[in-house]
């Protein structure tokens, strides 16, 4: 009788010990605010027209972008090893030498779809490229951070000469040390061309946020000026858009990031459309 009682007490305590308080999943609605001092999140998606799983990743990013608005900036780099070669029937080759350099600089992918979120290395991952299941969590986490830097990007586009002048103003909001770099690049949205999706090859797939060119060095231009809290640093760039690019769908993305040590994390980003 005594042993039975002990056994029952042990069983009851084990059962109680296994019970857990439920974890609340909050609503998906997020209103992070806007403006140059609001933290924005840069997502660099590594993709390719032969990558069968990548369109699912893009769909996730489009869905997130619909909720987060201008606070989510997506760049699709067509440099996925083994998946980026165009099909014979492709109209465009989205690969660029800058895209390859950029992709290698960010890190090594080991699965697709994959994307770097602010180029953060999230333990236990050892590379910035993260699996799709993690994106929303990391994006949400970063949106809640205060940016160490604010960026403003002014553009001046001449439709006749197709010349685009850009002025980037960077203002540190916290003390910064180490090497920092500025990267400016151009993306083009909604380009219709062939894409492998699952088991199908879709001839008129809408390719989103396609990286067209990196205006600075692909690995970023080193900011040589001292970065002092609340002291603005200004940089000017210009580029003439090739006629093949539809400027109505083009955007300029600017972001500041660590150079190499201790990581390549993006501190703040901004995106403007080439045309209004």
């Amino acid at each position: 009788m005594k042993h039975k009682l002990i056994f029952l007490l042990l069983l009851a305590s084990l059962t109680y010990g296994c019970m857990e308080m439920p974890i609340t999943i909050p609503s998906g609605t997020i209103d992070p605010g806007t403006g140059p001092d609001q933290r924005k999140v840069l997502v660099e998606e590594l993709t390719g027209v032969r990558c069968p799983n990548c369109p699912d990743g893009t769909a996730s990013l489009v869905a997130l972008g619909d909720q987060l608005g201008e606070n989510l900036i997506v760049v699709s780099i067509h440099a996925a090893p083994g998946y980026d070669q165009p099909y014979p029937e492709s109209q465009y080759d989205f690969r660029t030498s800058d895209g390859s350099i950029l992709s290698n600089y960010i890190g090594l992918p080991s699965f697709f779809p994959t994307a770097a979120i602010n180029r953060r290395i999230v333990p236990p991952e050892t590379e910035p490229y993260l699996p799709r299941q993690m994106w929303a969590g990391i994006i949400d986490e970063d949106l809640g951070e205060d940016p160490a830097m604010s960026i403003e990007l002014e553009k001046n586009y001449d439709a006749i000469s197709r010349k685009l002048n850009l002025t980037v103003t960077m203002t540190p909001r916290a003390a910064l040390s180490g090497e920092h770099r500025l990267t400016l690049l151009i993306t083009q949205d909604s380009i219709q061309d062939v894409q492998k999706k699952g088991l199908e090859k879709i001839p008129d797939y809408y390719h989103r946020h396609v990286l067209r060119d990196v205006i600075t060095q692909a690995t970023g231009d080193v900011i040589s000026e001292p970065l002092v809290v609340n002291n603005a640093v200004e940089k000017k760039y210009s580029i003439t858009l090739p006629v093949e690019w539809n400027e109505k769908h083009c955007s300029v993305v600017a972001f500041i990031h660590h150079g190499s040590a201790p990581d390549k994390e993006v501190l703040q980003a901004v995106e403007v459309h080439v045309t209004d």
Binding site: I25, P26, A63, A136, I139, D140
Partner: peptide, 9 residues
């Protein structure tokens, strides 16, 4: 936390 943030969407 990452699971929660993914599922909230």
């Amino acid at each position: 936390n990452n699971i929660v943030q993914e599922m909230r969407f």
